[in-house]
């Protein structure tokens, strides 16, 4: 890649500055060239976020219909599977799975709710509810 070929397709980086790429200058020497991004990268990054958004939307729907507890929504929003969430709250996976059932969740003591709330960076009150509506734009990073 030559310096003049370094792509400047802003997308993922937004107004966070630039990244650097290795490119060859006019004398054939390698140099570090600033780049605002690359369309190929933007496309696959969007694809990854679309998957996260779809999973979060699905979890939101299931929470709203009473099939899952709000934990499922926050878990999906934070890109976690049950295993990852279990290690963050320091509980066994089967317990987290159980807490995803609305009936079990409703009886959880505050100290358990607090552990989830801390991981998701919300209050104990918030972790017991989900937003009224969820649209993919809410987690779309750009």
């Amino acid at each position: 890649m030559k310096v003049e070929e370094v792509p400047q397709d802003n997308g993922m980086i937004g107004d966070y500055g630039h990244e650097v790429c290795y490119a060859v200058d006019g004398n054939g020497r390698y140099t570090l060239a600033p780049s605002l991004g690359w369309e190929a990268k933007n496309i696959v990054n969007d694809q990854a976020w679309a998957t996260i958004a779809a999973e979060t939307a699905k979890a939101h729907r299931l929470v709203k219909s009473g099939e899952l507890s709000p934990i499922a929504y926050y878990q999906a929003r934070h890109q976690m599977d049950v295993g990852l969430l279990a290690s963050y709250v320091g509980m066994a996976r089967w317990r987290v799975k159980r807490h995803r059932r609305p009936k079990v969740f409703a009886r959880l003591p505050e100290r358990i709710l607090r552990r989830y709330a801390t991981v998701f960076k919300v209050s104990v009150a918030e972790v017991q509810t989900v937003p009224d509506s969820f649209t993919p734009e809410q987690i779309r990073p750009r």
Binding site: M80, L84, P141
Partner: peptide
């Protein structure tokens, strides 16, 4: 980190 890069 820019939000678009925030993965586990």
């Amino acid at each position: 980190f820019p939000p678009a890069f925030r993965f586990h």
